[in-house]
Design a protein around this nucleic acid. Structure first.
Length: 287
DNA sequence: ATCCTATCCTGGCTGC
DNA sequence: TGCAGCCAGGATAGGA
């Protein structure tokens, strides 16, 4: 499940292969992959356009395009759960889950492969509408503790669904939310509006470290795992997918529940439901 | 304003 | 071993 750091890595891996290249013709094998309109319009928008920048916003990969030196829109891709982007020779065996392929002017092709067909692509003139609802980037300077705490207090929502809400903070997914809540010692069902400054600070720093945790680490294993299982990385998870296993902090078994229709993993002892109890637990630990 | 459910999809897993 | 049925997941739409 690619989240912010993985999408960042995808953009980084794609960058040297796409920047400077122009798109030629392409083929849309699964029409609903293209969300911006008809597949023909999508391909027409790309054809002849040159890639000048590859970057990330939330979990979107964005390719800025130019024609004759002038801005010519953007290719945008959301991998959702199982989407993968590859730049390979045309002879590349993309397998049965190839959804879109677009030729480049260096003889290679951009392949979009997606087992579950949830991934989406857009060609848009402007990004504003597509990104209008996105919240702040965790790694932006604007995402500071004060404004985060203020935003939390303004929302009477359960922490877990709130953190998954891309309009609140951009880029977090199920895995990082569970991991961040554990690191911040906060219960997934805690009310955001009731968090004190110290809790907001812990959560803020947990989110930051989650966002950069895998930066620079070898992502290839993950990226090439067709099912999207973070192969090789699950060793780093302290709660995600660890139901029944001992908490790395206290040894109590990790619990799995469903919150907001999402599998949710946490430690009952380290992330108590009651904030008062949590404060007491931390106080006694520090004695 | 927030929550809940269904939807989109398929591979992999469970249980018979 | 075969097969039906369930489950996971990000995002969104629509209803409560």
């Amino acid at each position: 499940m690619p989240e912010l750091p993985e999408v960042e890595t995808v953009a980084r891996l794609l960058r040297p292969k796409l920047v400077g290249r122009a798109f030629r013709g392409g083929e849309v094998r699964w029409a609903r992959t293209v969300e911006s309109g008809e597949p023909e319009a999508f391909l027409a928008g790309l054809r002849g356009a040159r890639c000048v920048r590859v970057w990330r916003r939330a979990k979107f990969v964005v390719v800025d395009l130019e024609r004759r030196g002038r801005p010519a829109g953007h290719l945008v891709c959301h991998l959702r759960m199982t989407g993968r982007l590859h730049v390979e020779k045309p002879s590349f065996d993309a397998g049965p889950h190839l959804r879109v392929r677009i030729a480049l002017d260096d003889g290679r092709e951009l392949f979009f492969i997606d087992v579950r067909k949830f991934g989406r692509m857009w060609f848009v003139r402007e990004l504003d509408a597509l990104f209008a609802e996105l919240g702040p980037e965790p790694l932006d300077d604007a995402f500071d503790v004060d404004s985060f705490h203020t935003a939390l207090r303004a929302r009477s929502r359960l922490l877990k669904p709130l953190l998954l809400d891309q309009s609140f903070v951009a880029g977090l997914g199920n895995i990082y939310v569970d991991e961040s809540l554990f690191r911040a010692r906060l219960h997934p069902l805690a009310n955001a509006a009731r968090l004190d400054r110290a809790a907001a600070e812990r959560l803020h720093s947990a989110i930051l470290s989650a966002a950069i945790a895998r930066e620079g680490s070898s992502f290839d294993t993950f990226y090439r795992t067709p099912e999207g299982k973070p192969g090789g990385f699950q060793d780093e998870f302290q709660v995600y997918d660890r139901a029944g296993l001992p908490c790395t902090n206290c040894g109590a078994p990790i619990v799995r529940t469903v919150v907001g229709q999402r599998g949710t993993h946490y430690c009952r002892a380290c992330q108590p439901r009651s904030l008062k109890r949590a404060a007491r637990a931390r106080a006694s630990r520090s004695k």
